Amino acid sequence: MLNRQDDGMPFLLQYENVAWYEDGEVRILDRRVFPTEKRHVVCKDYHEVIKAIQDMVTQSAGPFTAVGMGMALAAYQCKDMPEKKQIEFLKTASEELGNARPTTANRYSQITTRAYELGKEAIESGKDPINRIFEDTIDSMNRRYSTMQKVGDYLVDMMPNNSGVLTQCYGETIIGAIIRAARRTDKDFKIFDAETRPFMQGARLTSSCFQEAGFDTTVVTDNMTNFILERGDIDFYTSAADSITMDGYIANKIGTKQIAILANRVGVPYFVTGIPDLDKKSKDAIKIEYRDPEQCLEFAGIRTSMKGVKSIYPAFDITSPELIGAIVTDKGAFSPYSLNDYLKKGKVEEFY
């Protein structure tokens, strides 16, 4: 029986609902239609996993699991090839899955490169590479969930009971970690979720997790955040980060910075959660992904602007350290100006 760390997690964070390989298929819960529908996208080729990631079937930390399961699928696809061809096939899959999206390619590639090495070793020793890669992906999920639980524990410890908390986008694992930490410490929060256009992750995903867990949950449209901040509803603003550079800059879903500016203006602290990217020494290492601007011109499949109207869609923005109160990690909370202190807190654990 597999060891799992998803006990007490919301529906969205149960392992089978993130991404799951079985019998030559990867099933990924379609977060684009949740919670209106609970359906899975079924991938029978690892290229379909890449497309699912690029099409936002899964996002936040979900692709970390999807690329690992995609590597198990790639091993299945090439299982009848000669040994050398199997290894070449896995190598190509590792590179392509690892670069499914540019801003987080360094994190994806850690997972796919390890899966390739394990698969190659299994093939060369006459063992099953599919199961070895699958088990490694589960191990990776377990590490992420247990590591992010430490982050969630530190964050919840910093927040007084009955605080008003504003979120941005969908922080995936950290949301479940906050819920488990709050239950363990008997804390309650009033949660305000910015809707996060154009994919509405805050309105659909974050709010669903907190509501399922029994928190007082309110969705606010993206242009209401200043109103609730000035009205005094919010004690803390928090978000995860797709990238945390060692000079204290963070990249997260577009709109994160403007909320940080507004929070800073009224004295509401902004706490970022995540693990620093040790390989990204400065903000110059962040590559902003630009997505199809047509996605900003429609809602639920219905076009909202006249034909011929243009848009832009940068997927992320970069928030500078002066707007960040603390970066909360698995080793405690740090000033964004002193992230090198993170390295002084003992061995850096493998996270992905």
Rank of each mutant, 00 (worst) to 15 (best):
M1C: 09
D6Q: 10
D6W: 10
W20N: 07
Y21F: 15
E25C: 14
V26R: 10
V33C: 04
V33P: 02
P35S: 03
V42P: 10
V42D: 08
C43D: 00
K44C: 09
Y46H: 14
E48R: 06
I53E: 05
Q54M: 11
Q54W: 02
V57C: 06
V57F: 04
V57P: 03
A61I: 00
P63T: 14
G68I: 02
A75M: 03
A75G: 05
Y76Q: 12
Q77N: 10
C78R: 02
C78F: 06
M81E: 15
P82N: 15
K85L: 11
E88K: 12
L90M: 10
K91G: 06
K91P: 02
A93F: 10
S94L: 09
E96Q: 12
L97A: 09
L97K: 03
A100E: 13
A105W: 06
N106V: 09
N106M: 07
I111G: 02
I111H: 02
T113E: 08
T113M: 05
R114G: 03
A115D: 11
E121H: 06
A122P: 01
A122M: 02
I123W: 00
D128R: 03
I130D: 01
N131F: 12
E135V: 07
D139Y: 06
S146W: 03
V151G: 07
D153S: 15
Y154E: 14
V156W: 05
D157Y: 03
M158G: 01
N162W: 00
S163C: 06
G164F: 05
V165T: 08
C169R: 03
G171Q: 14
E172I: 01
E172R: 01
I174T: 12
A177Q: 09
A177V: 06
I178A: 14
I179Q: 15
I179R: 15
I179H: 15
R180Q: 14
R184L: 15
A194D: 07
G202D: 08
R204I: 12
T206M: 09
G214Y: 09
D216N: 09
T217H: 07
T217K: 07
T218F: 06
V219R: 05
D222R: 05
M224Y: 03
F227N: 09
G232V: 00
F236E: 00
A241Y: 06
G248A: 05
A251Y: 05
G255Q: 11
N264D: 11
V266M: 14
G267N: 08
V268T: 14
K283M: 13
I288K: 13
E289L: 13
R291V: 12
C296H: 05
E298S: 13
G308R: 08
K310Y: 00
S311Q: 07
S311I: 03
F316L: 12
I318G: 10
T319P: 05
T319R: 05
P321Q: 10
E322M: 04
I324R: 07
A326F: 10
D330Y: 06
D330C: 09
G332N: 01
G332Q: 01
L339Q: 07
N340F: 12
D341T: 14
K345S: 11
